[in-house]
Design a protein around this nucleic acid. Sequence first.
DNA 1: AAGATGACGCCCG
DNA 2: CCGGGCGCCATCT
Length: 127
Amino acid sequence: MKSAPTTKTPLVTAISGAIRKVPRGRVSTYGAVARAAGYPRCARHVGRVLRQMPGLPWQRILGSGGRISLSREAALEQRFLLEAEGVRFSGRRVDLKRFEHHFPAAARPAKVKPKAKLTGRELRPKL
DNA sequence: AAGATGACGCCCG
DNA sequence: CCGGGCGCCATCT
């Protein structure tokens, strides 16, 4: 097999827990889930968890801006499942204003390196 | 132990 | 709006 069956690291537990809280008819994003789980910089790992943990409402997790971040076919299925539970699309994306699930409160940021508070390109002076 | 990976996110042109 | 690039970071090989 390719990867470990159920690698239950704290990160996986926290992230899958957050994903499970997204109710039917609502959606969230990789980044939001990561933050809610206490791992603000681990948006990428959310996808990994969705892949390895069975039983998660994977279709409710979207990329930033409410866009589906899966390959064509899988994207079709995700959209289909979401529409089936009442989530509607505006073009290629879901209107997060109306369907995004708001997590109560992000657990205390797990031991993530303090690093900089700046985001994305900004922490790179590039000059 | 070092390098590669990836269901991401953000900025730029 | 879209593609190109790079930063993040836990896991996997």
